[in-house]
């Protein structure tokens, strides 16, 4: 029989983390964990539920920084970020995860820590150079980049007894930028990504792209930047016609012929998001 911890504060959480063993499970939104728990008939010695700590749910956005609690749900993130040009990609990605029911429970912490290759938030977190603030047993904290959070094998690098508390995005690095995320799945809504495309552009007043960042997801175990695509974009306007050329940058990145061919469509849909 499992012991269940439902801490109410970050301090209590720090204490509870000390009780975790290899056989313990940490429960965030549960949208993935419950399936795993049932399929494998897991009997954890400790079940640590994060849903009782209100602080983990806080989304705080200032002009300098966005701080997103690990337990913020997709729906909450979509609502908070939608309309903020530099953070729009995060709103897009969170707003397109699963169904409304999943978005009401699924959390950013779970999505990033679970690190499925098809997860939608990691490419955006990579795009925006997000940092993850982590707490371990006894409340010890450290901060790492989201790139360091992924272990490269659809898992995370968290040590036993560690959880992500929040994600931090330095908005000053993206002053004047706009971002967008577009995914391609099997249907228009409620679908697992086959390609996730996160793009951020810094444009001059006439629309010319001064700087560009492109990160693709759902292709490899972890998101990956596409510097070749960024180079194509720099110095041009976000003309949807660039999609064919941009699509070529996918070549060699995937063994799936379909994804290689479909990339240009996703590029075009992404570019359409940057039209004036």
């Amino acid at each position: 029989m499992s012991t269940c911890y439902i801490p109410k504060t970050v301090e209590e959480l720090g204490g509870a983390l000390g009780h975790l063993t290899e056989d313990s499970l940490i429960l965030a939104g549960g949208t993935d964990l419950v399936l795993h728990l049932r399929a494998e008939h897991l009997q954890p010695d400790v079940l640590l539920s994060l849903c009782g700590v209100p602080q983990l749910r806080i989304i705080e956005i200032t002009s300098e920084q966005a701080s997103i609690g690990a337990m913020a749900t997709m729906a909450e993130i979509h609502k908070a970020m939608d309309g903020l040009p530099d953070l729009q990609a995060l709103a897009d990605a969170a707003g397109g995860v699963g169904s409304p029911q999943i978005r009401n429970k699924g959390t950013i912490g779970g999505n990033a820590a679970n690190a499925s290759a098809a997860a939608d938030l990691p490419p955006v977190l990579w795009l925006l150079n997000a940092q993850a603030e982590i707490m371990g047993p006894g409340g010890v904290r450290r901060t790492i980049s989201v790139q360091e959070l992924a272990d490269g094998h659809q898992g995370n690098t968290l040590a036993l007894g560690e959880v992500v508390l929040r994600f931090l995005i330095d908005r000053t690095a993206f002053t004047g930028w706009r971002s967008a995320f577009v995914k391609l799945g099997h249907r228009s809504q409620v679908t697992i990504s086959r390609i996730g495309m996160a793009m951020a552009l810094l444009q001059a007043a006439d629309g010319t792209i001064q700087d560009a960042r492109v990160v693709a997801g759902a292709i490899k175990p972890v998101p990956f930047p596409l510097p070749a695509a960024e180079a194509i974009l720099r110095g041009k306007r976000p003309d949807p016609g660039l999609a064919v050329e941009l699509g070529e940058t996918f070549k060699g990145n995937t063994r799936r012929v379909y994804k290689e061919n479909a990339a240009k469509g996703v590029f075009q849909d992404t570019l359409l998001r940057f039209q004036p």
């Binding site: 391609l184 228009s188 999609a243 379909y258 061919n261 479909a262 240009k264 469509g265 996703v266 075009q268």
Partner: peptide, 9 residues
């Protein structure tokens, strides 16, 4: 039919 992604509406 989206001939670039193969999706049909």
């Amino acid at each position: 039919v989206d001939t670039w992604t193969g999706l049909t509406r």
